[in-house]
């Protein structure tokens, strides 16, 4: 059983290129131990940013990818049956609270609403986590911080944060980086030339134009890196874009044809 968070420490520096003041913002929020909410489209670097900050601040990072079947017990912990009877197992959130780590709940709107309510007492000035089933009131470690991410793109009536949850957080809005910055990120991460990376970013721009006009999201920086890696493996730019960008992004034949043509125009 893990009783420290050493396994969660990040030892190597995760590459991250700041496009604004986000590092200063986050450092300040962590200094004040305020919970942070990261908003932005998928694949724009939210998770990478948290990893980078955890490394920079030398804190262990406990990441939980939320899914729609996730329950409060999955976060807090539960009693398990062992050979000697039942015993308590801390969940990831409890671990971070107990030992002072950064707990990152990725895509928090995916989780069921009752899950988000348990973080309420942690995110105001009480900073406590009541473990009802265990009968323990856990006070947060001074180094503990909660970070959640949230993609407003999927926003629907069914999936949105409660107002009472939203208002507890500082929020940082992530977008796709500026084309120049994004180009250098793609070039560095995929190991391709700047010229090719710029073309990929231009293609991504075309797909982002279609956001709300047939696509839910444009191509993410992550997709571009994938496409770049495929080019480095020997595919042509058009092949790589078809494999890593156009086909994953939509099933609509009209949209695919339009995107293919747009890739063609840039390639």
């Amino acid at each position: 059983m893990t009783q420290t968070l050493d396994a969660w420490r990040i030892t190597e520096q995760p590459a991250y290129q700041a496009s604004n003041d986000e590092i200063a913002y986050y450092t300040a929020a962590y200094g004040a131990r305020l919970p942070v909410m990261l908003k932005g489209p998928t694949g724009c670097g939210k998770t990478r940013f948290v990893e980078h900050m955890a490394w920079k601040l030398r804190r262990p990072l406990v990441t939980v990818s939320c899914h729609e079947d996730m329950t409060a017990s999955d976060l807090v912990g539960r009693y398990l049956l062992g050979p000697e009877g039942t015993h308590w197992q801390d969940g990831p959130l409890t671990l971070a609270v107990r030992f002072g780590g950064i707990c990152y709940l990725d895509e928090v709107v995916e989780a069921r609403q009752d899950t988000t309510v348990i973080i309420h007492a942690l995110t105001d000035d009480r900073r406590i986590l009541p473990l009802e089933k265990k009968g323990e009131l856990l006070t947060a470690h001074p180094d503990f911080q909660l970070v959640i991410s949230y993609n407003p793109g999927y926003q629907s009536v069914l999936k949105d944060l409660k107002e009472s949850t939203k208002q507890r957080f500082c929020a940082m809005d992530f977008g796709y980086p500026d084309p120049a910055v994004e180009g250098s990120i793609v070039a560095a991460q995929a190991g391709i030339s700047d010229g090719l990376a710029r073309k990929l970013v231009q293609i991504a721009g075309k797909s982002r134009n279609l956001r709300g006009h047939g696509l839910n999201e444009g191509a993410s920086t992550r997709m571009l890196i994938h496409a770049g890696r495929l080019v480095a493996e020997g595919l042509t730019l058009r092949q790589a874009c078809s494999l890593a960008v156009v086909t994953p992004i939509t099933d609509d034949p009209d949209m695919r044809a339009a995107l293919d043509a747009a890739v063609d125009a840039c390639a």
């Binding site: 075309k206 134009n209 043509a261």
Partner: peptide, 15 residues
């Protein structure tokens, strides 16, 4: 029509 509209929007960023 639909595909053409998408093509134009993608290429030029105007609907």
């Amino acid at each position: 029509e639909r595909g053409l509209e998408a093509f134009h929007t993608a290429l030029w960023g105007r609907n």
